[in-house]
């Protein structure tokens, strides 16, 4: 008879395959779930919101730890690459995807970022995921693999609802592919109750690709809809226009109109709705892209 204190009141088996093929074999069985940093999964196990038969730990699979960047092929982030690795070990991230860099620095605590992965953040599919809005603005794609084969999908098509996505049983995120479309500036503006280690009340990623050239403004938001939300309508509106107060005003209103926030313990829907209008303007102003007439 086992004795002791266990936090997780549910029995399951644990596997740590060394190759992707083995892993995909295991995951094709019912009741098997993959883990990376397990920062979300262990929480759900404790709360008995997940009751898997078995857990397949993907961290021993060498190829999932790959990271590469080139202007031709963009950035490829293996599913097992941790956020702190992206922040500390790969200066290309900060240099070429500054808005994404800002956002992942705001995910959880330092300890968490030593385990948390971007693939995990995406796979968890929370509308509040901080890493997702900037990736949406950078037109990120996902390489998904399963025993049946692999496919590439646009990140914007991945989410289907809070905690829900298009992954099939046995399918995992293999890597995140972020095209390089030129230099970018921007801001990830996260409003939360406290300044560190909190989920966003609202998160707004505004990215400007090629700021000195074609100036392509893109915007995506967290915590204002059932899924992370990119607002193409607003982008289409502002494309090529001079950033007058009227244009920016309209841009912000379009962004706001596309949101459908709810009230929870982090904020009210009214406040979120209001901020979906305020923050796009604020970010453009703070980036020095337009001045308000006073």
């Amino acid at each position: 008879m086992e004795r002791g204190e266990y936090m997780i009141p549910h029995d399951f088996s644990y596997f740590r395959p060394a190759t992707l093929d083995e892993a995909l074999d295991m995951l094709s069985e019912d009741g098997m779930i993959p883990i990376m940093g397990s920062t979300d999964v262990v929480v759900k196990l404790r709360a008995r919101r997940l009751k898997p038969k078995g857990i397949v730990d993907l961290k021993a699979i060498e190829e999932l730890h790959n990271f590469s960047f080139s202007k031709e092929n963009g950035m490829v982030i293996g599913a097992a690459v941790t956020m702190n690795e992206l922040i500390e070990d790969h200066p290309e991230v900060k240099e070429n995807y500054p808005v994404f860099y800002q956002a992942i620095k705001k995910v959880g605590a330092y300890q968490t970022r030593n385990r948390a992965t971007v693939a995990g953040n995406i796979g968890n599919s929370s509308p509040a995921a901080d890493s997702v809005p900037p990736l949406l603005t950078y037109n990120a794609k996902l390489k998904l693999v399963s025993k049946e084969g692999e496919r590439e999908v646009e990140l914007k098509d991945f989410f289907t609802g809070p905690g829900k996505n298009i992954l099939k049983q046995g399918e995992i995120i293999h890597s995140i592919i972020v095209p390089y479309e030129g230099p970018s500036i921007g801001m990830y503006y996260k409003l939360s109750r406290i300044k560190a280690v909190d989920l966003s009340t609202i998160g707004v990623a505004l990215t400007v690709i090629d700021p000195d050239g074609k100036r392509d403004i893109r915007i995506a938001l967290a915590s204002v809809a059932p899924t992370p939300l990119r607002v193409f309508e607003a982008e289409d509106f502002i494309r090529g226009k001079e950033l007058t107060p009227e244009v920016v005003e309209e841009f912000a209103k379009i962004v706001q109109r596309n949101t459908s926030p709810i009230t929870d313990s982090r904020g009210t829907k009214e406040y979120r709705y209001e901020m979906a209008y305020v923050l796009p303007k604020k970010i453009l102003r703070e980036l020095g892209l337009y001045k308000e007439v006073s």
């Binding site: 936090m7 644990y14 262990v42 929480v43 404790r46 968490t112 030593n114 385990r115």
Partner: peptide
């Protein structure tokens, strides 16, 4: 120490292969 079991409080922080981590979020077999 276990302060929350959810990786939110840091009381269980250990240095794991050279990096600080919440030991409450690491499954033992790993």
């Amino acid at each position: 120490k276990e302060g929350c079991g959810n990786g939110e409080c840091g009381a269980c922080t250990v240095i794991y292969n050279g990096k600080p981590m919440n030991s409450c979020l690491i499954l033992a077999p790993e």
